[in-house]
Each structure stands twice: as structure tokens, then as C-alpha cells.
Amino acid sequence: MVVYNTVLMYWFEWIALGALLICLSGLAYHMIRLIRLGVQDDYSARAGSPVAGVFYSFTGGMDPRHKESAYLNLPTYVSGVIFHIAVFVTIVLFFLFLTGVNPGQSASLILSVVAFSGAVTGAGMLIKRLRDPKLRYLSNADDFISLLLVIVFLILAGLTLLIPAAYPVFMLASSLLLLYMPLGKLRHAVYFFAARIHLGRFYGWRNVWPPRKV
């Protein structure tokens, strides 16, 4: 794969690098703002452990057996898990491509399956968003744009692994995704962690989390 081995960067790689820097700056802005604002001082007498609460928030609190959002909606939950795994893998792939690392033929095949699986589950989520009255009601343009950008990102990653000629298009699609990320709902990449930390601290302080056995 010629494109992976070159030392000099192509114009579309420069664009992707620029988009990445803008994206990281945007996400850093969100993160720094959260850190600067800090967490709430609580004047009530503490009953439990905020640290244990935060730990539970990221572990037991995410256990699909205890979350209705998961066990009442198992297909959606499983799709979501596959989708997010595929996105994380593809982000790593984006960095590998950009740094000129070739994953090798057999790894490429596996990675393309992962990326395409993500794209398929993403497409399923898109169809559900269009058809389910609840989701249609909740959705705005940002929800569709964000999902579409990620699906295209996954498809092109899978294609690039199989057909190197798709690489420039993948880099351009990645650039669009990266530029959009800090603006729309994709920034939940940062806020998800903040939300679970806040929730864990709150319930941990009051001795609600981790739940004690009766």
C-alpha cells in the first residue's frame, strides 16, 4: 500500500491533521471549561464515599442487567455497543493511517469487518431514528448529521482497508467528522465521562451508590 509507506504527507492528510487539531482543541475547550468549573462543594454531612460512587458509576452502574435502557432494549443496546467499539477501533485506525503504519493484510481484513459491522449497526440506528416515533420526536438535524458522518467514516475506513484507493476520501470524510465533533452531540465523547463522575459523586456522597445489600 503505497500511501501508507510514504514519508511525505499528502494534501488530504494535511487537511485531516488540521481537522484533528481543531477537533482536539474544541474538545479540550469543553474539557478545560468543565475542569475549571470543578465539582460541587457539598455542605451536607457525608454519608457514603464519593470515590466508591464514581467507581460504581463506571462499573456496576453501567451493568446492563441493572439498566432498563439496556435490558428492556437489548437489540438496541447490543447495536450501540458494537457501534461504539467499531468507532473506537476506527479512530485508532485513523491514527495508524495518518502515521503511515500499515496494519497488515490479515489484520486489515479483521478491522474492515469491525468497521463494516459498526456501519451496519449505525445504519440500523439511523433507520430506527427515522421510523420510531419516540426517536423521531426527540431527534434534530444534529442527531442525523452526527450519525451519518460516523457511518460514512466507518464505511470508508472499511473500504480503505480493502481498497487503498479509497484512502483520500476516508481522510476527507474523517476531516469533516472531526471538524463537526466539538459542535454537535458527538461532543458527548467528553461529557459522558463528566456526567458519570457527577452522578457517582452525588450518589456516593449520599450513600445511595454503590447500593448496599438489604
Binding site: H30, Q40, S69, L72, L135, L138, D143, H188, A195
Partner: peptide, 23 residues
């Protein structure tokens, strides 16, 4: 008048998955 990051966090976190409806 944000005193901490709690409100900002929760205003920016929802992904409109709709899975809270049944709760």
C-alpha cells in the same frame, strides 16, 4: 451563574437515544 460544572455537564450529555422513555 454556574457555580460548578454539574449543570453544564448534564445539559450537554443527552444523545437522544430515547431509552429513558420506558423508565
Amino acid at each position: 451563574q454556574l457555580h460548578d460544572s454539574k449543570l453544564l455537564t448534564h445539559l450537554n450529555s443527552c444523545v437522544h437515544c430515547g431509552l429513558c422513555a420506558d423508565s
